[in-house]
């Protein structure tokens, strides 16, 4: 198996997490700005905002760290 040219699985993981983070963060901001009740417990924690930010940061770290590089 020629795995030298293979993009690392961690790059794909990073892409997905970054996308998810951005979406969840946006959903959290929207809920917050509209002052809508999401009908959940512990709303004061703003979990969507924190979780979305966390996923975005982790995702971007993996994307940058494991980005595909051209073979020399």
């Amino acid at each position: 198996m020629k795995t030298k040219n293979m993009i690392s699985i961690w790059f794909f993981v990073g892409c997905l997490l970054a996308l998810y983070g951005a979406l969840i963060l946006a959903a959290g901001l929207q809920t917050y700005s509209n002052r809508r009740s999401a009908n959940i417990a512990m709303q004061n924690l703003h979990l969507q905002g924190w979780w979305g930010t966390g996923l975005l940061v982790i995702g971007l770290f993996y994307v940058i760290r494991f980005r595909p590089r051209r073979l020399r």
């Binding site: 946006a26 999401a38 959940i40 979990l47 979780w51």
Partner: peptide
């Protein structure tokens, strides 16, 4: 999940 997760987190 339904208790703590709002839109987006529920999807996750």
């Amino acid at each position: 999940l339904a208790r703590y997760c709002g839109p987006g987190l529920l999807g996750l």
